[in-house]
Design a protein around this nucleic acid. Structure first.
Lengths: 246, 246
DNA sequence: CGACCCATTGACCACCCTCAAATAAGGTGG
DNA sequence: CCACCTTATTTGAGGGTGGTCAATGGGTCG
């Protein structure tokens, strides 16, 4: 850590990254991590509203979020969009672009954010040499598939109430995982994004937020949210709460 | 092909598999395919209704469908299920089990079916040695993610009418890809599975099938379906009725 | 042939969307 | 720092889509 003093900018690398345990290098040796850092050198800073990539952009890299948050969305044939993820630090964006060589959707910063740019060809080559990294690649892909399934479950059968409760709990637990408060946080996305993600309208989301507040489940003022009754909220969500903690 | 005469059962291997172009060995040399066949030796035959794996089963293998069809589903905390895929020959099942080491959902044969059992550890080792196979693994994962996104788009914003139209077109095109008729086929799943997959009820699906038939879009008798007007059906699937076209 | 499951069709109504308006929040220039 | 504009959020009223409940018809298999 003291090494940072000798440089004008803080030494951001995988070894001291605040989200390293959530990101790629899990179970890698010090040596492997050093090799990985050759791949993750490039960073990118984005302001709120900036696009990380757009639909149709050629695929060249994966992006690991270091700070901030993003929404990613796919665009249908008739132009309407579906928000598919809200991504937090330590999560990877761009995985779905590999097969076709182009990004099927876009990713947009919800606040000022920074990402590691991971050139996929280099990452692929390194993974070919480092089995532990290879496994981690599979894990990330598989984890992503599992998360998508959870969203499908949400969109398929649940009521609006259940969906919003599930989202609040999900975001709460993900903040907690990152060392922030699980009970109090500021949503970085607007109502309409939440609505789109949940397959609802902004009005319905707004009404539900008000209702949850009247019921004493949450305290909400604009984007600032406090969870007051996690148990009750979990029941509304269908006990669909902390599947990430097992 | 003549070799099969010397054996009681037909020689099923990757080299002559009818779905090889859809399956793993794309862009592999003859030599690589031979090595792959050491991994894909084991087959499994299932009758309609049999489970390929159940939720919670330990993850050990991927399954490549050789013939027949499957539905796969995830199970929510409160027990209700969401059908996530209808899988046809050449497609892979079990990808979402890697990260946790257990299958998060189950897969069930919709008709008499057969699969290749691919022990993942062996597949992983081989992929480590054969870069083309490694790339194919990424492609399959990524393709799966993209397909999930498409389903999200379907469940998030589309009307019941649009969802069913989209499913019929999707199935039609996948049958066509496999050399079957694109305009006439027999659905292997029951209405309630379709409904569950689309986030609807069996009654709604049934009503829509009847309506499509009255409108001359399809001819349907039970599970036998004929597409009569693909253009009109595509319009239903793509745009939201005749609302506003931006 | 009866038992069972699946598919179809109808009546009713709840939930959520649409449309509309008011209020709050955020950003920009004077 | 305030006035002004724009955008986001909240709240209300009303209507439509699709779910629920229920009954009938058809298919399959013992």
């Amino acid at each position: 850590m003291e090494k940072t003093m000798s440089k004008p900018s803080p030494a951001v690398n995988c070894g001291n990254c605040s989200v390293r345990r959530l990101c790629l290098p899990v179970g890698l040796s010090e040596d492997d991590i050093q090799r990985l850092e050759q791949v993750t050198r490039k960073k990118k800073i984005l302001k709120a509203g900036d696009s990380l990539f757009r639909a149709g952009d050629p695929f060249s890299s994966l992006y690991a979020i270091r700070s901030g948050s993003f929404k990613s969305a796919v665009i249908g044939a008739d132009g309407d969009t579906q928000v598919t993820h809200f991504a937090l630090p330590g999560e990877l964006l761009g995985l779905d672009a590999y097969s076709s060589g182009a990004h099927p959707g876009y990713a947009e910063a919800l606040e000022d954010s920074s990402v590691c740019v991971l050139p996929f060809t280099q990452l692929e080559n390194l993974a070919q040499q480092v089995p532990a990294l290879q496994k981690q690649m599979y894990t990330i892909f598989s984890e992503e598939l599992k998360q998508d399934n959870d969203v499908l479950l949400l969109l398929g059968k649940r009521s609006a109430e259940s969906r919003l409760a599930a989202l609040l709990i999900n975001i709460s637990s993900r903040y907690a995982q990152r060392g922030y408060s699980a009970s109090e946080f500021k949503l970085s996305m607007q109502r309409i994004d939440i609505a789109n993600y949940l397959g609802l309208t902004a009005e319905t989301v707004s009404r539900l937020m008000s209702r949850f507040q009247k019921q004493g489940l949450i305290r909400a003022q604009g984007r600032a949210v406090a969870i007051l009754d996690l148990i009750a909220l979990s029941e509304l969500a269908g006990t669909h709460c902390s599947y990430e903690n097992d």
